[in-house]
Design a protein around this nucleic acid. Sequence first.
DNA 1: GATATGCTTCGATATGGATCGAAGTATGAA
DNA 2: TTCATACTTCGATCCATATCGAAGCATATC
Lengths: 230, 230
Amino acid sequence: MKEGPDIARIANLIGDPARSNMLTALMSGKALTATELASEAGITQQTASSHLRKLLDGNLVTTRQQGRHRYFALADERVARSLEVLMELAQTTGHLRTRTGPADIRLREARVCYNHLAGQMATRLFDHMISHGYLALAPSGLALTEPGAAFVGAFGIDIADLSARRGHLCRECLDWSERRSHLAGSLGRAILARILDQGWARREANSRAVVFSPRGRAQFERLIGGEGAT
Amino acid sequence: MKEGPDIARIANLIGDPARSNMLTALMSGKALTATELASEAGITQQTASSHLRKLLDGNLVTTRQQGRHRYFALADERVARSLEVLMELAQTTGHLRTRTGPADIRLREARVCYNHLAGQMATRLFDHMISHGYLALAPSGLALTEPGAAFVGAFGIDIADLSARRGHLCRECLDWSERRSHLAGSLGRAILARILDQGWARREANSRAVVFSPRGRAQFERLIGGEGAT
DNA sequence: GATATGCTTCGATATGGATCGAAGTATGAA
DNA sequence: TTCATACTTCGATCCATATCGAAGCATATC
């Protein structure tokens, strides 16, 4: 017994409803203040403060002081990925009471996952990049091929700039709603940023949802060469 | 707030030390009785019974009655994968008190992950299969190429038989110790079975460890064309 | 300076749930 | 039938911790 890392510690940390609500809110990628997180979790500031300290101790979140505000963010892309995996598990092992409301449908179509795009549109983009050989598996993990570099270059992303930074360029991230992979890593981040910059889509306030405009959707469809399936 | 699946429920389920010890024990892939799991977790049978009921209710484990024994196993490959992801997170966010004992070193080299091989040797095999084009990413996920089918065929695995079964043939599974992927799915399962059948390695009792014989190790090295790095 | 806002610390409370002893049920063995 | 083993249920205990009120700091605004 007692083999491997202490999984209970971290799961227990995530396992409190207040804390998991906070972490879920942080999946939007935006740094939030302690007060905002308290409101997300539906608890008072005092209680939130205590929870946030535990999350900090557990290295699940980082903090940044700015004036009299204290901003919290997920510590790491790995934390985000783990949360997505848990979401997938929670969904499929859930007591079938997955009431899919309209908000849920929007989330399934396109949402922010930490700092990149997730949901149906993200997995479709991922599939497109795989089937065209833009992305391929290498021993070191997922890699962008030369045609792939041209593809994202044409989309307006400066690969040289991205590659210079530390951290992985391409990463797979499991999509809880689609149950398959989408693109994470600094390239995934850059793609989401470009989609928003170009005005193809906008972030919904206080939500992970990413809402495409009709025009943006059409351009996205053209990008991945689809027939524009609504 | 309250977006997405209820992650707290499942994390809380895993977050109890007794339950996480049970789940970790079940990562060995073997079905264990309630009494064995109680001993793994260091608790009495009564307490274990209560925990196991919760794990059943949460659909994390399945059960099978056999005489007066009741065998428990992980419900699903997805559960195993989620546990591995949590292990990775637990390890990297741990309070650096990762005392790597000798048992730990064996685990890192080769261990069972649910029903397939994990650890350094597994990731090396995975890398080998990727870099030789035996495995490739397809829109539907990881796929075995034709050269790959020949490779595993030469290893003594009947692909036609495996493909006929339901469930994924190839799956990536994140390795917590190596922080990269190894091969899961029914092919991963078959490869581990073949390694054990051929006597290249044996399972260690009451452990996830897989111990290679010197001869088995040499043959494994030859398989992946390595120089036999110890 | 005074006041307001954002956050933390302290203290008290209360509740969920992990635990085990004892008893109960079911299956197998003698 | 009798006994033993495997497991569950019940009941009681007890501890961890989530919670919030009140007070304390720190920073910004007036």
